[in-house]
Write a protein that binds this DNA or RNA. Structure first.
Lengths: 206, 206
DNA sequence: GCTTACACCTGACAAATGTCACGGGCGAGA
DNA sequence: TCTCGCCCGTGACATTTGTCAGGTGTAAGC
C-alpha cells in the first residue's frame, strides 16, 4: 500500500455522515479528509482538500447530489464520484451516471461492501447495484417532457390549478393539459397519484 | 469502567446500521451485541442478546420503531430505548415518549453526541432534542379523530373517493365528510395537501 | 337525565379537476 | 420542404371533489 485513498463525504444528516466516516476510517487504506452537509459545499471543499473519491448523497440542501457530481467532475476531473443514496429510484441512477458518477450504491447494501466499492471506483471501475441497474433498464427514462415534469414538480406543494398557473406564468388550461398528459403517461389516476409515481421513479429531479 | 454497555441497533438501511455500529464501537465502554433490519425482529433478538440500550429507527418494515419500542418495554422492562430517526416530526417524538422511549435523537445531530446520548439513556436520564421538544409542544397532539387519520392514511395511495369507500367499507359520503373535516382541521386546501401536512407532523403513524 | 363528541349515513350544491377537440408557433430531422 | 413533436393556448364537457345542512345511533362525562 502506498498513500491512502483520500475521501470526501457529503450527506446532510450529521449522524450518518459521522458514522460513515467512522466506518471507512477503520480501513487502513482509506482516510476521510473532508465532510460537508450541503451540495453546494462539495466543490469548494474538494478544491481545498483534493480528495481522490467523493461520496455524495442525492438528497441534500443547496444542490442535489447529482448536480454536485456534475459540478465536481467539471472542477476536478481526477476526482472519482460514488453516489450513495437512500432511495433506489431508477431515475436517480440514470441521472447520476449521465452526470459522470463512477458508482452508485444504495444505503441498503451491507456495510462491508462500501469500502470495496470505494476502492473499485478509485481504481477506475464502475460500481452499480445490479438489482437497481436491471430495474433502471426496465423502467427506462422519464417519458415526461420538460414542461410536464416542471408542472408536476410544482404540483407537489398541493395547490390548485390557478396557483400553479400563476407561479408558472401559464394559462390554467395549459396547466391542465400538461397535468392530464402527465397523468396519462405515468398511468396514474390522479394528479396526486402522478406526483407520487413520478417521484418514486426519480423523474422529478432538478 | 465495569462491563461495557450492550447495544442493539435497529435500522432498515444496512449501510447506516453498519456505520453506526462502527461509530459506537469506537467507544471503549460501548459494545454492539445485535443488529436487526426489521421492527418485528427487535423483541426476539433482544430476548436472545439482552442489550442494555436499544437504538431504534422509526421508519422500518414489519413494525415501526415506536411500536417496537412499546413491545420492547413490555418484554424487557430493564432495556432502555433510544429512538434515532431521520425525520424530526413532532408527532413522532410524542408517540415515542408515550410508547415508553427514554430518548429521542434525530439523525441531524452531530455524531459525537450519539455516544453521550446512549450513556445518558443508560444512566436513566431522558434525552430529547430541545429544538424538537419545543416544536412538539407548539404543534400539539393530532387534532384528527381515529377515523379521519385512517381515511387520510388510506388516501395516501392516491385513489378516488369510491376506492377509499370500498377499501374502508364506508359510504362515499362518509369518506368525503371525514376528508373534509381533516382538511379543515389541518388547514389544508386539498386532500393531497392534508395528507402532506398530516404526514409532516407525524400524525399518520399506525 | 342531559350534553357532548364521534361514527355513519343521505342529499344537494358549487367548485375544482380531468378529458377532449381544436387551434398556432417553433425547432429538429427526413 | 414537409412532417413530427413539443409548447402554449381556447372552449366545452362530464366527472370528481369539497362543503353544507340535515339525520341516526352510541359511548362517555357532568
Amino acid at each position: 500500500m502506498t498513500t491512502p485513498i483520500r475521501l470526501l463525504l457529503a450527506d446532510d444528516q450529521a449522524l450518518v455522515r459521522g458514522a460513515l466516516a467512522a466506518l471507512l476510517s477503520l480501513e487502513p487504506d482509506l482516510t476521510v479528509v473532508a465532510e460537508v452537509s450541503r451540495g453546494d459545499e462539495v466543490v469548494p471543499e474538494a478544491l481545498r482538500t483534493h480528495p481522490d473519491v467523493a461520496l455524495l448523497d442525492v438528497e441534500m440542501p443547496g444542490l442535489d447530489g447529482v448536480a454536485a457530481a456534475a459540478a465536481l467532475r467539471a472542477a476536478l476531473p481526477g476526482c472519482r464520484v460514488l453516489v450513495v443514496t437512500t432511495f433506489g429510484r431508477p431515475g436517480y441512477l440514470r441521472r447520476a451516471m449521465e452526470a459522470g458518477a463512477n458508482g452508485f450504491v444504495v444505503k441498503d447494501t451491507p456495510a462491508r461492501q462500501l469500502a470495496d466499492a470505494v476502492r473499485r471506483v478509485h481504481a477506475g471501475l464502475r460500481v452499480v447495484d445490479p438489482t437497481l441497474a436491471a430495474e433502471t433498464l426496465a423502467t427506462g427514462a422519464s417519458p415526461l417532457t420538460e414542461r410536464e415534469t416542471e408542472v408536476l414538480r410544482t404540483a407537489r406543494g398541493g395547490g390548485t390549478v390557478a396557483e400553479l398557473a400563476a407561479t408558472l406564468h401559464l394559462s390554467e388550461g395549459t396547466v391542465r393539459n400538461h397535468l392530464s398528459s402527465a397523468i396519462g403517461k405515468t398511468g396514474a389516476r390522479n394528479r396526486a397519484d402522478a406526483v407520487r409515481l413520478a417521484e418514486a421513479n426519480g423523474w422529478l429531479l432538478g
